[in-house]
Simulated assay, not measured.
Amino acid sequence: MTETVKKPLSEQAIRNLEMQIPDVAAGATHAAFFRALAAGHVVLKVEGNQIVESKADGSVRVVGEAKPRRKVTVGEVVKVRRINASA
């Protein structure tokens, strides 16, 4: 058996990888959206201040208004509380 030696990443390598997170997350979300539509599911998304329903046939319907729950300023610490899934 061969043993692989793991070399720790440098700070610059970690920073470079962390800078890719938003692009990777956006790509994964975009791909999931199209996979859900291809599977025949209805997908809800927010466009501007409206909640929009999208279907695989290309039809789009406004379902309701989306209002921000809270405005957050840069650097503000926000406490998040857990909501039970059964509630």
Rank of each mutant, 00 (worst) to 15 (best):
A26N: 12
N16T: 11
R15I: 09
G58C: 02
N49K: 09
K79S: 10
E3F: 10
E53I: 00
E53F: 00
R81G: 10
T73Q: 09
F33H: 08
G75E: 07
S86P: 00
V72K: 01
R82T: 13
M1K: 08
V74A: 15
T4E: 15
G64S: 15
L44I: 00
R81C: 04
T29Y: 06
T4P: 04
E53S: 02
G58E: 06
V74K: 13
E53G: 01
N84C: 03
A66F: 02
Q20M: 11
A66K: 01
V77K: 09
T4Y: 11
G48K: 05
H41F: 09
A26Y: 07
M1L: 12
L17E: 15
R35W: 02
R82L: 15
G48I: 05
F34A: 06
E11P: 00
S86N: 04
V74N: 10
K79P: 02
V72I: 14
P8T: 12
R35M: 07
Q12S: 14
V77T: 15
L37C: 12
V43L: 02
E11T: 05
E18I: 05
S86V: 04
V5Q: 11
R15Q: 13
H41L: 14
D57H: 05
L37Q: 05
A87M: 07
V78W: 05
V46I: 15
I14E: 11
E18T: 07
M19S: 14
E3A: 08
T4K: 14
P8D: 13
V60C: 11
I83A: 08
A26D: 11
V60Q: 10
L37D: 07
N16M: 06
V43R: 01
V62G: 02
V46D: 01
L17P: 00
A32Y: 08
T73N: 12
V80E: 03
I21N: 09
A13W: 04
G40D: 05
Q20Y: 02
G27F: 07
R61W: 01
A26G: 10
Q20K: 15
